[in-house]
């Protein structure tokens, strides 16, 4: 799946310059980098939430599904929230099973805790079918058990639909567990791209080495 090059400027400062890039369908690509490196900006521009400077949206071919960092729980039950995306009772039941939120089905989504909202939002998004799925720190608010369940569901979704996934994460362990590819962003530039093993264990750029050393990876 091709992504066209673009830049994004906020208040006359270029915050992201992204080159032409190709994502592999059926693979999960982790986007890593420190705060302010442009990870969330990349997600928002690709999802069409923010326009690129070139206004050349859509930047990716095909449909895009996007999970924001802080998803919104519509003022209705968790079950109704899932059905909003796709009216499929059997699929909704499977998604809720996968994330163990069946007991929350009748609870109002705007009254959930942060972790519950994150699980509901992921289940709701994965009711749809997309060519490119962009997940912006989907498990940041989840506990360890929910995180592992969410990772399993994401992998299962990729197997089911064969879509390309862009997983923005601060957890290098998570990238290692579920991603096939990885890209490293630094100060608004894509510095390195390759397989997860290449990026995490054999980085070529000194900036990547410095970033990974902090997490004890190199």
């Amino acid at each position: 799946m091709k992504i066209s090059a673009f830049t994004k400027t906020y208040e006359k400062k270029v915050v992201l310059h992204f080159p032409d890039f190709e994502l592999v369908k059926g693979k999960i690509t982790a986007v890593i980098g420190s705060n302010g490196s442009g990870k969330s900006t990349l997600a928002k521009v690709l999802a069409g939430i923010e326009p690129s400077d070139q206004k050349n949206h859509p930047l990716a071919d095909g449909s895009v599904g996007y999970l924001p960092q802080k998803s919104y729980g519509f003022h209705m039950s968790v079950y109704a929230n899932l059905m909003l995306n796709k009216h499929d009772k059997e699929l909704a039941s499977r998604r809720m099973d996968a994330l163990k939120i069946n007991d929350l089905a009748k609870k109002r989504a705007d009254r959930l805790s942060g972790g519950e909202t994150a699980r509901m939002a992921l289940a709701r998004l994965l009711m749809g079918t997309y060519d490119l799925l962009i997940l912006d720190e989907p498990t940041a608010a989840m506990d360890r058990e929910s995180t592992l369940l969410a990772e399993e569901l994401i992998k299962e979704y990729v197997r089911e639909t064969g879509c390309a996934v862009l997983l923005i994460t601060h957890s290098l362990q998570q990238a290692r567990r579920i991603a096939d590819e990885a890209i490293y962003l630094h100060a608004g530039e894509l510095l390195e791209a390759g397989t997860v093993d290449q990026i995490l264990y054999h980085p070529s750029r000194p900036e990547t080495v410095q970033f990974l050393e902090f997490y004890g990876f190199v």
């Binding site: 999802a47 069409g48 939430i49 449909s63 895009v64 599904g65 996007y66 999970l67 924001p68 802080k70 998803s71 919104y72 519509f74 003022h75 209705m76 909003l84 995306n85 939002a121 709701r124 998004l125 749809g128 997309y130 962009i134």
Partner: peptide, 23 residues
């Protein structure tokens, strides 16, 4: 937040506005 979430699921502008009304 609401519109970002709705757009992330590919909802149309009309569906998003109706949902906003419900909210």
């Amino acid at each position: 937040r609401m519109m970002e979430t709705a757009k992330g699921m590919g909802f149309s502008k009309w569906k998003t506005f109706l949902l906003l009304g419900n909210e």
